[in-house]
């Protein structure tokens, strides 16, 4: 991907992130995510209905990479069935961790395919996937 386009997508999602701001609604599952390096700190709320992600919202202070990755991840997951979410999550994590992955399922999330060049930012890119992982744990425990 052209580096200017990559930067433009990341910056646009950082400065105008999708679904930033929480709502007070008990039908959402609440999830907190912190980065291991102690600076990114985001709260997520996720609504699941009929085995599909209906809505995801988030709030908190985080860097350009974790905020934009969260925004793009939210756009990629809303409307997806849980099995599709699992597939996206697995491939996204493989991409960040420099393992073989299927780029076809990741869509716009492919903008982070070179984040491994900045090792200290991998944990930032993994913030939204940590939230989704926690969600899947909650759903698995419910079943």
């Amino acid at each position: 991907m052209d580096s200017n386009l990559r930067r433009e997508i990341i910056l646009d999602n950082y400065q105008n992130p999708m679904n930033k701001g929480l709502v007070d609604d008990d039908s959402y599952i609440k999830i907190k995510v912190n980065s291991d390096n102690c600076i990114d700190n985001l709260d997520f709320i996720i609504k699941v209905s009929d085995d599909k992600i209906v809505d995801i919202r988030f709030d908190g202070e985080a860097c350009a990479i974790s905020t934009s990755a969260t925004s793009i991840m939210i756009r990629s997951l809303i409307g997806r069935r849980i099995e599709e979410v699992r597939t996206i999550l697995i491939n996204y994590k493989k991409m960040i961790n420099e393992e073989a992955y299927d780029s076809d399922v990741l869509g716009e999330l492919n903008v982070y395919d070179e984040i491994c060049k900045q090792p200290n930012r991998k944990s930032c890119a993994l913030i939204p996937s940590k939230a989704v992982e926690k969600l899947l744990e909650v759903l698995d425990n419910e079943n």
Partner: peptide
């Protein structure tokens, strides 16, 4: 965001802390 600034400064070999 503070971390962007510290990463930016590191590019010029200036070591600060963000957080």
């Amino acid at each position: 965001f503070a971390q962007e600034t510290s990463i930016y400064l590191n590019h010029y070999h200036i070591c600060v802390r963000a957080g």
